[in-house]
């Protein structure tokens, strides 16, 4: 970038530029920056939600939070969910992208069908899966029993570890299309001569995947993994609607605790402390991601 404005025209342009960004900055300050700061401030108070009566407690909320086993178990749940669903999304996503990259029949229809789960509302996804998972009349139990895999109906959402596994699977189903599309776009730009060279060297399909495709996908995969890790970490809707954090808080992740503290247990200050702590952990991911994109010159 060149040095800052000098000539009158450039100065006028700079002013126009500021004018154009002004609405954005105003909205950001009002609905993002101010709430962020007040979340920090709020976390130092004890607030009773219905009356909004509050008293200063300093760092007591944080002390209480870190001392309770709940924080650590919620953190573990969040990490298990994130790692589990992210791994599945990446593996399924790459696999499906490779398939769709081939010349299969009705390719664009196939792509639409794969893309659909990503765009439907989480509410719709959860309703459909709850019906599929239904213990008495659900199709999944029927199919599993017919295939002889189990002879008792499985309780998918009401017992552990089933609940966590089900949530992870539904999360993977809902979000893997993101990986598919991103990887597919990158696959189409890998130069064909690379594959030809590998073929001449006698590399089979599997060797070609590991020696040519995967290294070429590396950069885009790093970005996808970071983004999805952040989004999965903060996921609320899917888990809340499927299990509500149950059975007995075994799928209770950090975002769900924040919500429950604020609006079910009516402790806004404590909830803010949870939110800030969660944010602190997430910040690590975010900084890594922002660094990565900045290196690439995207920011």
């Amino acid at each position: 970038m060149t040095t800052l404005t000098q000539t009158p025209l450039e100065r006028r342009y700079a002013r126009l530029g500021l004018l154009l960004i002004a609405p954005t900055v105003l909205i950001f300050c009002a609905v993002i920056i101010y709430p962020l700061v007040s979340a920090l401030y709020l976390s130092l108070f004890k607030v009773f939600t219905p009356t909004l009566e509050s008293s200063w407690v300093g760092l007591a909320n944080y002390r209480e939070l870190l001392a309770s086993g709940m924080f650590w178990s919620a953190l573990v749940n969040t990490l298990v969910w994130t790692a589990g669903t992210l791994t599945l999304q990446i593996v399924l996503g790459i696999g499906m992208a490779l398939v769709l990259h081939q010349n299969i029949w009705f390719r664009s229809l196939a792509r639409s069908l794969i893309l659909f789960p990503y765009f439907i509302s989480t509410v719709v996804a959860v309703l459909v899966w709850k019906w599929v998972f239904n213990d008495l009349y659900g199709i999944l139990n029927h199919l599993l029993m017919q295939a002889g895999i189990t002879n008792m109906p499985v309780d998918y959402l009401g017992s552990m570890p089933n609940a966590m596994i089900s949530v992870i699977l539904v999360g993977a189903w809902k979000y893997f299309p993101f990986v598919v599309i991103a990887v597919l776009a990158r696959l189409q730009t890998i130069p064909e001569p690379l594959y030809e060279a590998a073929r001449i060297d006698g590399a089979g399909p599997i060797a070609r995947f590991f020696d040519v495709t995967l290294p070429q996908l590396r950069d885009v995969l790093v970005v996808i993994i970071m983004l999805r890790a952040i989004w999965d970490f903060k996921e609320f809707d899917l888990i809340w609607l499927l299990t509500g954090g149950g059975p007995s808080s075994s799928t209770e992740t950090l975002p769900i605790v924040v919500y429950r503290q604020a609006f079910a247990l009516n402790q806004m200050g404590m909830a803010a402390a949870w939110a800030v702590s969660m944010m602190a952990i997430l910040l690590v991911f975010m900084i890594v991601y922002i660094r990565k994109t900045r290196d690439k010159g995207a920011v």
Partner: peptide, 16 residues
Amino acid sequence: TYLLPSVVLIIPLYLM
């Protein structure tokens, strides 16, 4: 802000 979780903003936004 693109990466910011909603649950962090929701408490102060609700109060506001």
